[in-house]
Simulated scan of single mutants.
Amino acid sequence: MAKKAMDKLITRKEAASILGISVKTLDAARTDGLISYVQYVENGCVYFTEVGIQEYIAKCTHRAKPMERAATYRKPRSFRR
Rank of each mutant, 00 (worst) to 15 (best):
M1S: 10
M1E: 08
M1C: 04
K3S: 09
K3R: 15
K4I: 02
K4P: 04
A5C: 04
A5I: 03
M6G: 03
D7R: 14
K8M: 06
L9F: 09
L9P: 05
L9H: 12
I10V: 12
I10T: 06
I10Y: 04
I10N: 02
R12M: 09
K13L: 10
A15I: 06
S17E: 14
S17N: 14
L19C: 05
I21E: 05
S22T: 13
V23T: 14
V23C: 15
K24A: 06
K24I: 01
L26V: 00
L26W: 01
D27A: 12
D27S: 11
A28M: 09
A28K: 12
A28P: 01
A28F: 07
A29L: 05
R30F: 03
T31M: 11
D32K: 15
D32V: 01
G33C: 02
L34N: 15
L34I: 00
L34W: 13
I35G: 05
S36V: 02
Y37N: 11
Y37H: 13
V38H: 12
V38D: 10
Q39I: 03
Y40I: 07
V41R: 14
E42G: 09
E42N: 11
N43Y: 06
N43V: 09
G44V: 00
G44M: 05
C45E: 03
V46A: 07
V46W: 04
F48S: 14
F48N: 15
F48H: 15
F48G: 14
T49M: 03
T49Y: 03
T49G: 04
T49E: 03
E50D: 03
V51I: 02
V51G: 02
G52W: 06
Q54I: 01
E55W: 00
A58F: 06
A58Q: 12
K59I: 05
C60D: 13
C60P: 03
C60N: 15
T61I: 02
T61P: 05
T61G: 08
H62V: 15
H62G: 08
H62L: 14
R63V: 02
R63A: 09
A64H: 02
A64D: 06
A64N: 06
K65C: 02
K65R: 09
M67K: 15
R69L: 15
R69V: 10
A71D: 08
A71N: 10
Y73H: 12
R74S: 12
K75I: 08
P76F: 08
R77F: 07
R77D: 04
S78W: 09
S78D: 12
S78A: 12
S78G: 11
F79I: 13
R80S: 10
